[in-house]
Structure formats: structure tokens, C-alpha cells
Amino acid sequence: MWQTLLNKILLRGQRAESAAKQFLESLKSEAAEGFLELLLKLMSLVFYIDPGFRRNIENFQGRYLFRSQDRGITVAAVFQDSRLKVSQEEIKDTNVTVIFRNGKALMNFLLSPKPDILGSLLRQDLSIDGNLNYLYKFAYMAKHLQLKFMPRS
């Protein structure tokens, strides 16, 4: 049983490494396609393998909806019971909804070159409906992952 658990953790660890690689690649892409899905995938895996990171969502309940302006991308992220569930469907009763111009705008907003929430709002790259603090928390977690997996210079 321990061996099974260990294998699971190792497997998820490997998957996290792979997801992190893809995630970092997406950061370099001009279009930033798939950036959000990769970020959430990586986040889910790291919550599983890293208790320190998991502490971020202990006793935390948050419902997030990310949607592109053209509705081409819709991603819901629900934090509950120390887990992150991701779906491609609209959800109701969100704490915060983020409507973004495109993947690049969302990436700039959260990560690159710095967590630029205000700047993104100023550029009207995205609009937010809901509690900004939930977004700040999400941006913190995203930034943490970026720093964790980014090659040290």
C-alpha cells in the first residue's frame, strides 16, 4: 500500500515536472495558447505532491471562472476540500470571474513579466467581476509556481 502511494506520488511528481516544462514553454509562446489549462494542471499536481503548497488551499473555498472575450476559452477552477477541480464549463456563484482579451493578456495579467493586475486592468486587457482578493490569492499561487519551476539564473 505504501509502495502504491509512493508510486502515485512519484508518478505525479514526474507529471508535475512535465507539466511545469510545458507551462514554462507556454510562457515563452507569443500566443500563450493553453497557458491557463497548463497552469491549472500544474497547480493541481503540485497541490498533490507538495504539502507546503497545498497549505494554500486548506480550508479555502473559492470558485473562479476564466473566460475569453470571444468565449473561445472557458475554464472554471473550484477550490474545495483542499483540492482543485478544473472544468471547461461555465459555473455560477463564482467569487470572481475574469474575462480576458486573449491568452497572452491573461498571462501578462498573472505572471509576466510580473504580477501585473492593475496594469492589465488599465490596459483593459481584461475585466473582473467579483472579489479582487480571490484573484490576488490566485495570482500569488501562480507566481509561486512560476518561481518554483523557473530555471535559476
Binding site: N133, Y140, K143
Partner: peptide, 30 residues
């Protein structure tokens, strides 16, 4: 709360950085 996303980089940010220890950042975050 507006510096929440920056807790891990506020020390080194380009414009007017402000010192914050890792323990203090954790206390704010958690």
C-alpha cells in the same frame, strides 16, 4: 492585500522594492 501576488518578488521588484522576509511573507499569505 494588493501586494499579495508580489509577496515573493517585492524584495527584488524593479520599482521601489521593499524588504520582506520569507517568514513574514508566509505569515501574510497563510
Amino acid at each position: 492585500m494588493t501586494i499579495w501576488p508580489e509577496l515573493e518578488v517585492i524584495n527584488t521588484r524593479e520599482k521601489n522594492p521593499q524588504q520582506l522576509t520569507a517568514a513574514e511573507a508566509d505569515e501574510l499569505n497563510f
